[in-house]
């Protein structure tokens, strides 16, 4: 197999495949989410099985000969048959990946990184705050909470996007909204008159969902500045620093802690993150250009 380690590879002794070698996956489904964002269903082209993942983890996706980018996994962790990624065309590599069609091959390395705190959050009210493409890395956590619905208190998802046309997973959002025991609130920054939902910043939605700040775990994913504002509001309401988790983004080249690009203070975002407790990174978030 193209992906197996060589017989004399030092990695073989540790029973892991070469972590720098992408494994070929075939696109079995492509959904256009917005004008620049697509969702792929991927299955291994080598006939093997898919490694399990924890919500919050990411893969390096490889466009043949062009390059590689870190993309969070956005499928259901309870469904190991298919690997799901939502990605936005923003650079040369993501543009090439987004242009791929059903049947094409995409390279995959992973999964890498830390997970959302599904265990630690047991018994808590859950507040998920997503901004823009940031809903994609949170979706597996939402699936996990729904699967274990009775393990958690109130579950709220608040989601902000730029315009109604840029909302991800619209059909699913509508489905969740209709479910008993879920608060799903969506807002946009700009809208035309045909939008019936709220217009305003995502943090305003915090006052629309119910949670007990003393027993709440908040999960945040979106632009860093949005997360900073959301954290300020959460802590003002009384949510503890070690109950706020955020998914950080930095330049990544290797995803295994060697290339040094993703350093965020002492943390390597690829292996110590991408999911961090706010308590652990509060000092760093306050420093510009760190």
């Amino acid at each position: 197999m193209a992906t197996s380690a060589t017989s004399d590879s030092p990695l073989r002794e540790h029973g892991v495949a070469d972590p720098m070698m992408p494994r070929p996956f075939r696109i079995t489904r492509k959904v256009k989410e917005t004008h620049d964002t697509v969702t792929f269903d991927l299955v291994p082209a080598d006939g093997g099985t898919i490694a399990g993942f924890a919500p919050g983890q990411f893969n390096m996706l490889y466009a043949f000969g062009i390059g590689e980018v870190p993309i969070s996994i956005s499928g259901d962790p309870a469904n190991p048959e298919v690997l799901i990624h939502t990605l936005r065309a923003v650079g040369a590599v993501t543009r090439a990946l987004c242009d791929a069609r059903r049947g094409d091959i995409v390279g995959v390395r992973g999964p890498f990184g830390t997970a959302w705190p599904a265990e630690q959050a047991r018994g808590d009210d859950i507040v998920l705050i997503a901004g823009g493409i940031g809903l994609a890395p949170l979706r597996p956590a939402f699936y996990r909470f729904l699967t274990d619905r009775r393990t958690y208190g109130r579950i709220s998802l608040i989601y902000g996007a730029r315009t109604p046309a840029e909302l991800l997973y619209r059909r699913e959002l509508e489905h969740w909204r209709g479910q008993f025991g879920l608060d799903v609130e969506v807002t946009v920054d700009h809208a035309a008159a045909d939008w019936y939902g709220p217009v305003g910043v995502v943090t305003r939605l915090l006052s629309r969902v119910r949670f007990d700040p003393i027993d709440t775990t908040a999960l945040l994913c979106g632009p860093e500045v949005m997360m900073r504002f959301a954290i300020r509001d959460l802590t003002r309401l009384g949510v503890a620093d070690d109950h706020i988790f955020l998914s950080m983004e930095r330049n990544m080249k290797c995803a295994i802690g060697f290339c040094g690009h993703c350093q965020f203070g002492p943390a390597f975002v690829c292996k110590d993150g991408p999911v961090f407790s706010y308590r652990d990174v509060a000092r760093l978030l306050a420093v510009a250009e760190i």
Binding site: D36, V90, G91, R162, D189, G200, P223, V225
Partner: peptide, 15 residues
């Protein structure tokens, strides 16, 4: 809130 909206945090400055 207006200032945050003006930041257009979800925008794609590359495009």
């Amino acid at each position: 809130a207006t200032r945050i909206q003006l930041l257009d945090v979800y925008g794609d400055k590359r495009n």
